[in-house]
């Protein structure tokens, strides 16, 4: 398989690249602004790039990086893999989020833009497309700069800086977390098998955020959990039945894997 990754510096792309190299896959890693003819000769194109305005401004076709990449892939005769988000599921339909339900986006601008983008990509790719709706992707995000300031990044940064993890939500809040290494393996599997489908990619298990903080502090050796608002917010998990039907042997992580991930992240942070 000849694989192109657009947006090579993103957190997930770097793990996909590393994982692909380990599997002996020929990878062309491209910057977010690579010319469209750079994907000529590829079997599969995966896009990770995103326009900064995506998080705050309404959808515009000319700022849709997924659409641009999908068109380039179609022109090159390649399959396209779009990394979408669980945020395409509206608030009332995300526990669990299921691929068959209408996905017009949640309350965030980002979620709504991705939902619009999914439709545009499907039309542009003319069937040669896999859309992956990713859960919260988790990994060693400490020290990562730029736009990505996910839940794990915030926990690790404040624990390292102040010895404190701050929650503006209840520790009982349940979300679906997927270790980035497993996410990378899943993306590569989809890139290789090229199903023409929309698939969730998460753990399929709701985990309490407080447990993650507990395990990270356990690995770190110490830390304080401060809760500024005890409301459960943004709870979700992804139904993985469709994914399992395509990839029955893919090992989805359970809570043990998340515990190990968190303890190891805490240890790495302590030793950093």
């Amino acid at each position: 398989m000849r694989l192109a990754l657009i947006g090579r510096n993103s957190f997930i792309a770097r793990h996909v690249h590393k994982c692909a190299q380990a599997q002996g896959i020929e990878v062309t890693a491209l910057a977010h602004d690579a010319p469209s003819d750079a994907v000529q000769g590829m079997d599969t194109v995966v896009n990770f790039s995103i326009d900064p305005s995506w998080f705050s401004q309404a959808y515009r076709t000319d700022r849709d990086c997924d659409l641009r990449a999908a068109r380039a892939a179609a022109h090159a005769g390649a399959h396209f893999v779009m990394c979408s988000t669980r945020r395409v599921y509206p608030d009332h339909a995300r526990f669990p989020g299921r691929e068959g339900t209408p996905a017009n986006g949640d309350e965030t601008v980002y979620g709504r833009n991705k939902a619009v983008s999914e439709s545009a990509v499907l039309a542009a790719a003319n069937g040669a497309c896999t859309i992956l709706r990713l859960s919260n992707i988790s990994g060693p995000e400490h020290g990562i700069t730029g736009r990505r300031q996910g839940f794990f990044a915030q926990m690790l940064a404040s624990l390292h800086r102040d010895g404190v993890i701050r929650f503006d939500m209840s520790p009982a809040t349940r979300r679906d977390f997927l270790p980035v290494e497993i996410c990378a393996q899943g993306i590569l599997l989809a890139a290789r098998d090229r199903p023409a489908a929309t698939l969730n990619l998460g753990s399929g298990t709701p985990t309490r955020c407080g447990n993650l903080a507990q395990w990270i502090m356990e690995g770190f050796g110490r830390g304080t959990l401060v809760v500024t608002d005890n409301t459960a917010r943004d709870e979700f998990f992804l139904d993985m039945a469709v994914w399992r039907s395509h990839f029955p042997r893919f090992p989805l992580p359970d809570e043990n894997a998340l515990k190990d991930l968190c303890i190891n992240l805490g240890r790495e942070l302590r030793d950093a």
């Binding site: 929650f167 209840s170 520790p171 009982a172 309490r208 407080g210 447990n211 903080a213 507990q214 502090m217 356990e218 770190f220 050796g221 110490r222 830390g223 304080t224 959990l225 401060v226 809760v227 500024t228 608002d229 005890n230």
Partner: peptide, 26 residues
């Protein structure tokens, strides 16, 4: 210290502003 017998779940309803905070340590 959050050893095996402790569980953050035991404090879930209490960890909120001006009520309780958890310090993990020995």
């Amino acid at each position: 210290k959050m050893t095996y017998a402790a569980d953050i779940m035991n404090l879930m309803d209490l960890l909120r502003p001006s009520t309780a905070e958890l310090v993990v340590g020995d």
